[in-house]
Design a protein around this nucleic acid. Structure first.
Lengths: 206, 206
DNA sequence: TTATAAAGCTAATTCCAATTAGCCTGATTA
DNA sequence: TAATCAGGCTAATTGGAATTAGCTTTATAA
């Protein structure tokens, strides 16, 4: 009964490693433990499997947005938390968040798959930009705006601040996606980044 | 006689849009203006075309490194230039460089192709990291180190400074690769970024 | 000026991967 | 308990894409 979902899982794994067109229906079936023609009892064709993965991601995204009160959805709440934080706590938080996005199996695979497929279809490119660029920048911008108006941080443009905070994270994430053995290095660099960000925009200055 | 090279050009164009396995030998031939079997007079098979593209890029890279005195290869020379620059000149320079990487046909297509293929083969992933992450960061780090020791800029870690300068450029580049219509927006953000970078690490501070 | 090689073409050939046809079994349900 | 359905299987079928065979032409070079 959950074969239908197993198919999505295994397909996502394969798509994230080789890209849609380098994965054969046979490969997916083999991993699920059935024969290729049996797949068609669950999905109309290969493309439908891909589409279902995308649809599921959209659903997860909506679900998450629904549940407020959760990390990354309520800038006011988060800002309140951060404003009392020490630098070490901030680093800890940033690192944990980074590692969460890096390690969570579903998130990681989906990100890699979209990376591969982003130019094939404009809607996938748009999804990529939204998920990994615009949404994070918007959210961090809101967060920073609150922290600035509360006097916790100082900066002229929260848009630029958000870019300064987020883009190193993004860059480091892509490094680790390509080569997980560089994770330790990435964490070290990330620490330096957050420390410096805090110094540049932080409490002590001006 | 230059059919051999035309093939590489057209193949690169197609690979950068759809990825290796979604491009058919037929498509390439058609664009070149010959029939598919004629391609085999020039290259052993489809993979050989791909390999030749990679090899050509390596060659170009080496050639460029050979020719010192050129933008992006001699940090001392570049540092000397930058140290006398006004903020506006700096922005102009950064924007021009950004636009160069964004618009240069060969560079752009190659970058997009590597983006698509980076996970298929570790050597491609390594090439990506080198070209678009490690080399730029190393170079900018050297440049910044010179500017810091000359007292033009102030910062504790040139590694982190390089990350702060470069990663927004990288992020903006990926946005425009996915959606060229966002170029104007990217330039605007880039300006804000450089201005802020200059303010944060620049002459006036401390 | 004849032989040769380079580069093109058409017509196979080969191989594979996606999908369909049609059968079987075991659970569910009227 | 008989009918139905879900979900699996094997054995085709289909279609497409890479590559090969073998012919032709034109330029080059002995």
């Amino acid at each position: 009964m959950d074969t239908k979902h197993r198919i999505l899982e295994e397909a996502l794994t394969l798509f994230s490693e080789k890209g849609y067109s380098n994965v054969f229906v046979n490969d997916i079936a083999e991993r699920v433990g059935i024969k290729a023609p049996s797949l068609y009892k669950h999905y109309k064709n290969k493309q439908a499997i891909f589409d279902a993965i995308i649809a599921e991601m959209h659903q997860r995204f909506l679900d998450q947005a629904q549940v407020l009160n959760i990390q990354g959805n309520d800038p006011f709440r988060d800002a309140e938390i951060y404003s009392g934080f020490s630098e070490e706590q901030l680093i800890r938080l940033g690192t944990d968040l980074f590692l969460y996005y890096l390690h969570d199996d579903y998130i990681k695979k989906f990100r890699k798959m979209l990376t591969i497929e982003q130019f094939r279809d404009p809607s996938l490119g748009a999804a990529y930009s939204k998920l990994y660029v615009d949404d994070p920048l918007t959210y961090q911008g809101q967060l920073l705006a609150i922290l600035v108006s509360a006097g916790v941080l100082h900066g002229e443009s929260t848009e630029t601040m958000a870019l300064h905070f987020y883009s190193p994270l993004y860059l480091l994430l892509t490094i680790c996606d390509r080569d997980p053995s560089r994770e330790e290095e990435a964490i070290r660099i990330l620490e330096g980044h957050i420390r410096e960000f805090n110094r540049l925009y932080g409490r002590t200055k001006e």
